Simulated scan of single mutants.
Amino acid sequence: MIGLAKPVMAMLLVLGAGGAALAQERPSFDCAKADNTIDHAICKNGGLAKADREMVAAYTALLNKLNGAAKDDLVKDQVRWVANRNRACRSDSDSIEDCLKNRYTSRIKNLRAYVQGTYPAISERSLAKQGKLGKITWSYDLTYPRFEGANVDFSAVNARFADAANKIADESTPKAADGSEREQQWYYEQGFTVERPPGGQAATISLSFDSYRGGAHGYGATRCTLVDLRSGKVIGPDGVFTAGEQWLRLMTQLVGADLKKQFVDNPGFEDALQPASLAKLLSEANRYCWTDKHLEVIFNAYDVGPYAAGPYQVDIPYDRLKPILRPDGPIAR
């Protein structure tokens, strides 16, 4: 720890950097000094204690790789993450352990993604509120990313995520016309993880949400956004694949064949497999989740099957995509 800036040292102490010396069943901090609901919940749960140690290890690995402004950005983001975790999970007293598990899972994944290649300063922003209007009990808790860069203008992509989050927050807050005389419970929960596809030139934001506003059941989905770190712009499949219709034809063939096999055990809508119908779905950018290992093509509930069938996912190795990847695109061939 010698030589680290004072704010960094203070942050590591807060997170419990001495966790490596503790017993494996303990978190990164001393449970004997736990003095709040969050710390007590972590200390009582072996899985959460392990997640806390893994998160601190991932944070420390990334911190040791950075210097200057990038290191300062990470420290500030971690302080913000801890504050958001405490606020959100403390208010969710009925399922505090599930709340913590979800927060830790996303944070660990993101920190490990950041350490791959050039560090993109992607911080977490949060909107959360709860209340009651008449007989409607409501809450929303959503996180979304913010890109930082001295040499790249990310203002458009940041506005895109922030505007979407604020719109959801407004829609998740009941109004007088929403039937407040009926007993209802509304909720909206949203989180994100970061993927680093091959080449280090892009980052995928995988945003997942779960919501309920009355009715027979709630609804959840995953939507992905690919951001070119060289330009700060959102890139769709037409910016990753070579020009022309070849990429859409090949994707329709690959995805259609995979879905047809999945329908044997998990029946879906047969008409969704028609080339024209599938090509239309595959033209939608938010289905493409570019990971470090392969491309995941996401079909949420109702897209190609009934609600009871749930989501479908098609994984395609990058080797299969080489012929249609742009040589100068954000995904390495």
Rank of each mutant, 00 (worst) to 15 (best):
I96K: 06
E97H: 03
R112M: 12
K65V: 06
D92M: 02
D98A: 15
S106W: 06
Y104S: 05
R80M: 11
D92R: 06
A70I: 02
A69M: 10
D77G: 11
Y104V: 05
V79D: 14
K109W: 12
W81Q: 15
S95H: 08
C99R: 00
V82L: 14
A88D: 00
R107E: 11
K76T: 07
G117I: 01
V79C: 12
V115S: 10
D94H: 07
D72G: 14
N102C: 10
K101D: 11
Y119S: 04
A83M: 11
V82S: 08
D94C: 09
L74Q: 00
S95F: 08
I96E: 06
E97F: 07
K71A: 13
N67S: 13
I108C: 07
I96A: 10
Y104R: 07
G117W: 01
K76C: 03
K101M: 07
Q116K: 12
V82T: 06
R107C: 05
R112Q: 14
L100W: 00
R112T: 11
Y119A: 04
A113R: 00
R103M: 10
A88C: 03
P120L: 08
R85D: 01
S93I: 10
Q116N: 09
S106Y: 11
L74A: 03
R112F: 07
I96V: 12
D73N: 12
D72Q: 15
P120R: 00
N84Q: 07
Q78T: 13
K65L: 08
N86G: 15
I108T: 07
K65S: 13
R80S: 14
V79A: 15
D73Y: 09
I96C: 11
A113I: 01
R85P: 02
T118M: 03
T118V: 04
L74H: 06
N102W: 06
S106C: 15
N102Y: 07
D98N: 14
N86L: 05
C99E: 02
L66H: 04
I96S: 04
I108V: 15
N84Y: 02
K109D: 13
D77L: 04
D77Q: 06
Y119D: 03
N110M: 13
N102L: 13
S106N: 15
V75T: 03
A69G: 10
A70G: 04
N67D: 14
K101T: 09
N67C: 11
N84T: 05
D73K: 09
